[in-house]
Design a protein around this nucleic acid. Structure first.
Lengths: 219, 219
DNA sequence: GATTATTAGTGTACTAATAACACTATATCA
DNA sequence: TGATATAGTGTTATTAGTACACTAATAATC
């Protein structure tokens, strides 16, 4: 094919969220060279030959955060002209939500990935702030009608932990009794015989999700 | 930049919906050559130099359907390997919803665009059936919490027409009185002094949308 | 071992939203 | 003028959402 049409560079960027210390945090790396050197950016990179964007996103998550098999979905394709000063570039972005505490060790990547509160971010490289804002919006939307929120927790969790996931993502406090009533009538979680104890307070019952995360609707 | 990374061809495909005869219809063209020759496909094409995907989508709509300034939003980026037998190809897809009856004349494009009911489609080129299915899903989702549905109607419309938009997209019948009550309490439309008459029945009051389509939430 | 601090866990009453349901009004057509 | 077709209109019952305060069980402290 003769080059009559635009063939942009394709990068894949991942907005990886985690909930920690009652805060919604996002994983950022430091740019080592090129445009925006020294600034914080979303973990990402060029698409390799033979890769789908989904596989590239998995690779980025594995290399930068040391996580595998996490919830991930395609977010949006950003193609504003000039978003990369080097030339035409599309960012196919993905959102992911991983459990806290992280089950796997940190990565040995050189770009020092770090978690930052989404509430106080300094100026980021490229249009990555815009991408993060859009990702938060998507996360909030999906929280209302899917089981996406459970991805922020390990397999066994307490109702207080679950409520905190909702509170942090929606950025508002919820009533404890109403929240539990809702969870009860949705019949999506089941009590286990485990308790979370040793925490200077009454031990909490632990629950598990009945269906696969991300599938059930009608919250 | 040396070619170490994948630079796929980028096509933009548009899922253009319209409601006609109580049916959700999608605009398809006939492929004149290349793979899937003679089969029906979504209107689309390669991205030109200097174009954003959004501008390319507008161009496709203008050329294939003769419509401008319609509601349109990015849907998804499809990149399954082998989706185009000619080589690596990304389809950045858009969904659009246009009013019926169409305010503008048909296009003079050679690919004879035609409207087809989404309920009975023959086998389509590429993964376009998958794209349409996903577009319908998105349309249904957005109908619940945005004013996207109003884009299927002209500026003045009757409540029965509006209800039909909801019924056709959601593929279920709605109760007339409950629908009107809901519209009333949402305070998003206002009565005009126009009526739609000449239709072998009692003339219907015409209404207009108060806010900009696509913006308001909380349906 | 008694006291304190901390979070877990529970029910009721009020309000708002949704769902089910049938008849009259006004035009066109024959 | 009678038939037909769609417009337009309220009430009741059910379900979901919201507001709100105390007791329970543990760890930590003295």
């Amino acid at each position: 094919m003769t080059k009559k049409y635009l063939q942009p560079d394709v990068t894949v960027d991942v907005v990886l969220f985690m909930i920690e210390d009652g805060d919604l945090k996002v994983l950022l790396v430091e740019r080592e060279h090129g445009p925006y050197e020294g600034m914080r950016a979303l973990p990402g990179g060029y698409l390799h030959e033979g890769e789908t964007t989904r596989i590239a996103a998995d690779r980025v998550l594995h290399n930068k955060a040391g996580v595998d098999n996490v919830y991930i979905e395609q977010l949006y394709t950003f193609d504003t002209p000039g978003r990369d000063p080097r030339g035409p570039n599309f960012s196919i972005s993905y959102v992911a939500l991983v459990p806290s505490p992280l089950p796997i060790g940190e990565s040995d990547d050189v770009q020092k990935p770090e978690w930052f509160s989404t509430k106080k971010l300094s100026k980021l490289a490229f249009d990555h702030q815009e991408i993060i804002d859009y990702a938060i919006e998507r996360l909030r939307g999906k929280l209302e009608y899917t089981t996406i929120g459970f991805n922020a927790l390990p397999k066994l969790f307490t109702l207080s932990q679950l409520q905190q996931v909702y509170e942090v993502i929606l950025d508002k406090t919820l009533d404890k009794r109403n929240f539990r009533k809702k969870m009860d009538q949705l019949k999506m979680i089941k009590e286990t015989k485990h308790v979370l104890s040793g925490m200077r307070q009454r031990p909490a019952k632990m629950y598990s999700l009945l269906a696969k995360p991300g599938t059930i609707k009608n919250f």
